[in-house]
């Protein structure tokens, strides 16, 4: 039992591997932000396509969203990393990480955005059309601004999800925090201790992110609405 408790004495491992851990963390955070950025934009476009597009477009968007959300992220990464090379497309682990996570993120963001779009009341459309606004104007200036505000809680939740799931980069070898951790552990054989350090780092980053997000959400609220 005493030996188990000493598993939590991690300071020296942390200090001696600080540079490598920080490098992994930097990759993780960069990956998260880039994926969120492109994934959200792409997701909004998908949601618009699904809600307003002509039948074939709407169907395609729906199929994309349901298929990606209905299959594991890891399977999607594997397809990109292990299946494509047979067709001559050989992406690096880093590229696979960026593309794969973005594709996944877009599907989820699309679903959240669609929910918000559908919650914009019919009276909003009625008013806009009565003023002589065309459909695209109504979508751009009346529906989207409201739908996006409604989506923000879900979007920020997604940020936390992506942050956590970037750890999957470990499995394909992209140099994120977990991969660096594996590298360290494979040399000092302190698997539990190293991964425990990683866990604490994730915990701290997630708590900080959540705190920042809450502050931002409060700032951008429409007075009295939502």
């Amino acid at each position: 039992m005493l030996e188990f408790l000493t598993e939590f004495m991690i300071i020296d491992i942390f200090v001696s591997n600080f540079a490598r851990l920080m490098s992994g963390l930097r990759f993780t955070i960069t990956l998260t932000f880039v994926v969120m950025f492109f994934g959200t934009i792409f997701g909004v476009l998908l949601a618009l396509g699904r809600s307003y597009g002509i039948k074939p477009v709407s169907w395609l968007c729906t199929a994309y969203i349901e298929l990606i959300r209905g299959t594991p992220m890891l399977a999607q990464l594997f397809i990109l990393y292990f299946a494509l090379p047979a067709y001559g497309i050989r992406f690096s682990a880093v590229t696979v990480a960026y593309i794969g996570f973005t594709i996944n993120c877009a599907a989820y963001q699309a679903e959240y955005t669609r929910g918000s779009i559908e919650s914009v009341g019919a009276d909003q459309y009625k008013s806009a059309y009565s003023l002589g606004m065309k459909r695209w104007q109504t979508i751009l200036f009346v529906v989207l601004p409201q739908a996006i505000r409604w989506s923000i809680p879900a979007w920020t939740n997604e940020f936390i999800y992506i942050l956590k799931y970037t750890s999957l980069a470990y499995i394909i070898g992209a140099p994120d925090l977990m991969t660096q951790g594996k590298f360290i552990a494979s040399r000092n054989y302190q698997f539990f201790r190293v991964y425990f350090i990683a866990a604490i780092i994730y915990l701290i980053i997630v708590l900080i992110s959540t705190w920042i997000i809450d502050k931002l959400e409060a700032k951008f609220k429409i007075p009295g609405f939502g």
Binding site: D123, Q124, K126, A128, S130, V142, Q146, I222, F225
Partner: peptide, 13 residues
């Protein structure tokens, strides 16, 4: 044509 209706329909944002 101006149109005013029961639910107001003001743009919330």
């Amino acid at each position: 044509i101006g149109y005013v209706f029961q639910g107001f329909g003001l743009f919330h944002h």
